[in-house]
Design a protein around this nucleic acid. Sequence first.
DNA 1: AAAAAAATTTAGACTACCCTAAAAATAGAT
DNA 2: ATCTATTTTTAGGGTAGTCTAAATTTTTTT
Lengths: 220, 220
Amino acid sequence: MQNSFTEENYLKIIHALSGREGLEVTTNALAESTSTRAASVTDMLRKLADKGLIHYKKYQGVRLTESGEKVAISVIRKHRLWEVFLVEKLGFGWDEVHEIAEELEHIASKELVERLDSFLGHPRFDPHGDPIPDAKGNLTEPDYLILTDVGVGEKVLMMGVLDHAPSFLQHLDRSGITLGCVLEITEINDYDKSASVRINGSNSLFISLEVSKNLLVQRR
Amino acid sequence: MQNSFTEENYLKIIHALSGREGLEVTTNALAESTSTRAASVTDMLRKLADKGLIHYKKYQGVRLTESGEKVAISVIRKHRLWEVFLVEKLGFGWDEVHEIAEELEHIASKELVERLDSFLGHPRFDPHGDPIPDAKGNLTEPDYLILTDVGVGEKVLMMGVLDHAPSFLQHLDRSGITLGCVLEITEINDYDKSASVRINGSNSLFISLEVSKNLLVQRR
DNA sequence: AAAAAAATTTAGACTACCCTAAAAATAGAT
DNA sequence: ATCTATTTTTAGGGTAGTCTAAATTTTTTT
Ligand SMILES: [Mn+2]
Ligand SMILES: [Mn+2]
Ligand SMILES: [Mn+2]
Ligand SMILES: [Mn+2]
């Protein structure tokens, strides 16, 4: 049987919250992320467990089963491919595409996804630097550094963001920080951990700790 | 407030069934088209009437209001634009796109539709020859002939289909009948009204009355 | 014009998803 | 180890959309 939009959203969120290690996800965390009440989450968990999509023992949190993981990754694949489409083909800004992809990710057709993937040239990453799972469901998270882990004098490549909020992405746009740009830390203020950063070797700007904490980068 | 998928589907179907003249649509016709029971239709009609999307008097059938018409046409615009995308950009066959567009037509973003329209070069017709409403909601149905209205010796252009069923479209593919091809009636059999037709001046084939009745054409 | 047939609506019920309030279980503090 | 605070589940209920069966209205036939 088919999964509903709601079920797919739950699975995707459980995947995100359980992280690389596949930790147990709590009811409250899910209530927070789905903007529903804990009682509603419990109802849904019982249903997902009945369908064999999650491992669920009362009071013990949840993990995805193999089958649940498969569904979650398929939804993530669709989400990220559609985001690439919206940015690369339709000219949307990276701050505008998340909400739309949140709907498009639920379009069922398998054939559509594969043709879209070809049309886009089999992109490996979405407009926010997040990796796109392949058709077989393999998803490899690159291990990037957070900019706060980089010292003065180091040059790094900007590879992704942790915060996907439009306001954060628009702030990066205004600062001239784009995916793939070279960032060189020229100074870190001891007092508030704000930093001076040179972008692509030229203009320099101040960025707050709040911003640094949300930038994923890579050495060299 | 937002309309649900179900409401949008009802409005689109009411639009289709009430035709050019905006005739009253019956409960049973809607039950048939929506694959639900008449009792379910009645429930929905009450809701659509409460939202001001249809004119509804018990036992008297329904018509769209101005506002309902606007929603219906917006859904049709999205449906047909997505079909163009699927065929022109992703290489789907015209027999494969209807079901997928049936889902895509409910994606809300207005901005998305307008960018998609630009990306596709503002197409006027969908892959089945149906006209695409413009951004302002104007929909002009060209007045085509049905092939059964064409006499022996006449040459016409193939402009569209009445039946959108994959099996019919695949039959046309196998016959070599495509949108825009020239059809010349060389013979009509009096007994069963089957016809001999020359396609693009070359190869000739028999087509049944059933097929003729579903082909929209234009003189010259 | 009445009776029969067909179409439509109402009544009552079900599933999916969500809610609030109360109960139960777990985790944390003393 | 017990008590308290927090988390989670259960209980009971609501809306959207669907169903079947029964009642009502309209249409057709006689
Ligand atoms: Mn979603
Ligand atoms: Mn993304
Ligand atoms: Mn639809
Ligand atoms: Mn079409």
